[in-house]
Nucleic acid binder design. Structure first.
Lengths: 223, 223
DNA sequence: GAAACCATGGGAGCTTTTCCCGTTTTGCCG
DNA sequence: CGGCAAAACGGGAAAAGCTCCCATGGTTTC
C-alpha cells in the first residue's frame, strides 16, 4: 500500500461533513479530507488539492449532485467520484453511473462500507452497492427501467402524459390538445398500462423521478 | 453546570449515527451518547438509559420519526426530543411540535448548532431553528398558502393525504389503515376540497412542494 | 350537557374510466 | 405501388370510482 488516500467530501450539510470527516480520519488508509459544500466549490477545491477520491452527496442545492458530477468530469476526466446517497432507488444509480460516477453506495450501509468503497475507487476500481447492482442487473434484463418505459410511449401519449402528470384533468388536457375527452381517456389508460402504474399519483411520482415535472428538480434531487 | 448531558441518537443510518456520535463527543458538555436505529428500539434504549435528550431523525422506516416521537412521549411524558431533520419545510416543523417534540433543527446548520440545541433542551428549554420559527410566525399571520392549507387537515385526513399522494389507490389506503373504502373516499373528497385541488396529480404535486413525498422505500417497508 | 368536531361508513346518483370496437392517417418496406 | 403495422382518433356499454347527503358514536370544550 502506497500513500494515504486523500478525499474530497461534497455535501451541503456542514454537520454531515463534520461527521464523515471525523469518521474517515479514523482509518489509517485515509489521509487528508477536504470539504466542499456544493458542486461549484467542489471544482475549485479539486483544482487545488486533486484528491484521489470525491465523495459526493446527491441532494444539494444549486447544481445538484448529478450535475456536479458531470461538471467535475468535464474538467477532470480522470477524477474518481463516489456517490454517497440516501436514495436506494435504481433511477438514481443509473443516472449517477451514466453521469460518470465510479461508485454508488447508500447511507444504509455499515459505516465501514464507506471506507471500503473509497479505497476501491482509489485503486482504480468501481464500487456499486451489491444489493443495488443485483437489482440493476435484473432490471436490465427484464427491461422494467422507468426511463425505458417512458421511452416506450408514443409521441402523442407522451404529450398527454406530461399534461396529466402536471395536474391537468382529463378534460382540461383534451381541451388543451383539441381532442375528444374520450380520446384522452383512452390514451390515459394506455399510458398507465405502459408505465405500469395504477393511480394518477403514481404517474405523477414517476414523472417527477424522471424529471418531467418542471418544478420537480428539487423534488427528487433534494432529500 | 452540573453533570454531563447524555444523548440518545435515533437514526436508521449507522454511518450517520457514527458521524454525529463522534462529533457530539468532542463537546465537553456532552457525556454518554447512545444509539437506536428506529423508533421501536429507541423506547427500549430510553428505558434502560434514560438519556437527557433524544435526537431524532424524521425519515425512518418502520414507525417513522413522528410516530416515534408520539410513542416515546406516551411512555415517558417528560422526555426531551430534538428533531433533527433534513427537511426545512414548515409542515414538518408544525407536525413535530404538535407531536410533542421540544426542538427542531435542520441539518443545514453549523455543526455547532446541534450541540447548542441539545444543551438548551437539556436545560429544559425549547429550540426551534430561528429561520424556521421566523417563517412560522409569518405563515401564521398570512395563513393563505399551501402549508397553511395542509395544516388545516385533520390528523386522519393528513394520514390519508400522505398515502394517496404517495401513489396508493383509495382501496390500498383503506386496507392499510383498516378502514372502509367509502371512508377513505369521503376523506379524500374533503382533502381535495380543503387543499383546493381537483385531480390526484395536483394533490401529489402539492405534496411534493410541501415535501411530503417519500423518496425512499419506506412506504413498502412495513408490510 | 349542549355544541362542535372528528372518524367512521351506508346509499343513491352521478362522473369517470375501462374495454371493445371501428375509422382514418401515416410511414415503411419489399 | 399495394400492403401492413402503428398511431391517432373517437363512439357505446358496462364497470369502477367519486360525490353528496345522511347517521352514528366518540371526544373536547365551554
Amino acid at each position: 500500500m502506497a500513500n494515504k488516500i486523500s478525499v474530497l467530501l461534497v455535501d451541503d450539510h456542514a454537520v454531515v461533513r463534520a461527521g464523515y470527516k471525523t469518521y474517515l480520519s479514523l482509518s489509517e488508509r485515509i489521509g487528508a479530507v477536504y470539504e466542499a459544500d456544493r458542486g461549484e466549490t467542489a471544482c475549485q477545491v479539486y483544482d487545488k488539492q486533486t484528491p484521489d477520491v470525491v465523495v459526493m452527496d446527491l441532494s444539494m442545492p444549486g447544481l445538484g449532485g448529478l450535475e456536479s458530477v458531470r461538471r467535475l468530469l468535464v474538467r477532470y476526466p480522470n477524477c474518481k467520484i463516489l456517490v454517497f446517497s440516501i436514495h436506494n432507488e435504481l433511477v438514481y444509480v443509473t443516472r449517477a453511473i451514466k453521469a460518470g460516477a465510479k461508485g454508488y453506495i447508500t447511507k444504509n450501509n455499515e459505516p465501514d462500507t464507506l471506507v471500503t468503497a473509497v479505497c476501491t475507487l482509489a485503486e482504480g476500481g468501481t464500487y456499486i452497492e451489491p444489493a443495488l447492482a443485483q437489482q440493476l442487473a435484473v432490471n436490465m434484463a427484464i427491461g422494467q427501467d422507468e426511463a425505458y418505459k417512458v421511452k416506450s410511449l408514443s409521441p402523442r401519449e407522451f404529450d398527454i402524459f406530461c399534461l396529466l402528470a402536471n395536474g391537468l384533468s382529463t378534460r382540461q388536457a383534451a381541451e388543451k390538445l383539441c381532442l375528444s375527452y374520450k380520446t384522452v381517456c383512452n390514451h390515459s389508460t394506455a399510458i398507465k398500462e405502459k408505465l405500469n402504474v395504477k393511480t394518477m399519483s403514481e404517474l405523477t411520482l414517476l414523472a417527477g423521478r424522471q424529471g418531467i415535472i418542471k418544478t420537480g428538480s428539487e423534488l427528487y434531487e433534494h432529500s
